[in-house]
């Protein structure tokens, strides 16, 4: 379990993190969202014990990170921002170094090494200096190092940054597979990642928590939650008729001829829209129901704070 209590970090007069409190239980995958410079990385650096908080405390698995850093760090795996690695080392030597420091031995060590090499597809680059690897491979070496000792807590700062779509998918699968018995904290600014891996989202803006919800919960805050978008090719008055439906707040039309009916207070309007289409004999060529647009919620929440 991770517990942070009114965690703050000041750099001179600049307040990077301003009183963040939350706790995370095993089995949760917590997504840290926020604009650049919002304090995501600083918070992660304080959780992992790299930075000392100006105020407040963090404990990981019952160990206070400031008072008992070595015990807390033993239980954590951390992928720092930008996935740093020793350039002149090969991934093999680097992982050996981390395994030595983490005290992995014997059979367990061999199994874990084989596991990370297999799951992060490192076999073809194991003996090549890290400096010569592509960004994607470096990121995977960083991930391998973080999960090598099968930690209870994983802190991953932008784990999929710089990966191609296939690699992203693999890393997300890996995270999902590890999720059930671990605490995983992932920071990202890729919103699709949140719905793909997270069970909970914390949005940080200006060093403060501005939202703490499930991804679904956040989606329901969107004005597009339960909105119906459709394209009709034989009804010029469709926009007006849709707008007259009881639960429809307003109708937006896009340039390519799609109409989007936005519901009042997130009510379900699909049945009434489809009944209307049937009654009017509309020729519907495309129809879809929106679950809500995270990017729009994200923008709303984070710009509110800045204004």
């Amino acid at each position: 379990m991770i517990v942070t209590k009114s965690l703050s970090k000041h750099y001179g007069p600049l307040v990077a993190v301003d009183g963040i409190s939350f706790s995370v239980e095993a089995g949760e995958v917590l997504g840290f969202l926020g604009p650049n410079g919002a304090g995501k990385s600083t918070t992660m650096k304080m959780i992992t014990g790299f930075l000392a908080p100006t105020d407040g405390s963090v404990s990981v698995c019952g160990f206070d990170v400031q008072e008992n850093p070595v015990e807390a760090k033993r239980r954590m795996g951390y992928l720092p921002e930008g996935a740093p690695g020793y350039g002149e080392m090969t991934p093999m030597a680097f992982l050996d170094f981390v395994a030595d420091i983490r005290g992995l031995e014997g059979d367990h060590r061999r199994r874990r090494m084989a596991y990370v090499v297999e799951h992060l597809h490192l076999d073809q680059v194991l003996h090549q200096p890290i400096d010569t690897l592509s960004k994607g491979f470096r990121r995977r070496v960083g991930l391998a190092q973080a999960i090598l000792h099968d930690p209870e807590v994983l802190i991953l700062d932008e784990p999929t940054d710089g990966l191609d779509p296939n690699q992203k998918h693999e890393v997300r699968t890996l995270i999902n597979n590890m999720a059930p018995d671990k605490i995983i904290v992932v920071s990202t600014h890729i919103l699709e990642e949140v719905t793909a891996v997270c069970t909970r989202v914390i949005i940080i803006a200006d060093g403060r928590i501005v939202a703490d919800d499930t991804p679904e919960g956040l989606q329901t805050r969107s004005r597009y939650h339960n909105a119906v978008t459709l394209k009709i090719d034989n009804a010029p008055d469709a926009k007006k008729l849709l707008g007259e439906l009881d639960d429809v707040r307003r109708v937006e039309s896009s340039e390519d001829g799609h109409l989007t009916a936005l519901p009042k207070d997130g009510r379900v309007i699909f049945p009434s829209v489809s009944a209307l289409a049937r009654d009017q004999d509309w020729n519907v060529v495309d129809i879809q129901v929106d679950h809500g647009r995270l990017d729009e919620v994200f923008r709303d929440i984070t710009t509110e704070v800045q204004e």
Binding site: G49, F50, V70, M76, G82, G87, I101
Partner: peptide, 14 residues
């Protein structure tokens, strides 16, 4: 410069 300091100091060493 390479950021490895963050890695090194978050390993379980003093």
């Amino acid at each position: 410069k390479s950021g490895t300091i963050e890695l090194l100091l978050t390993l379980p060493v003093s």
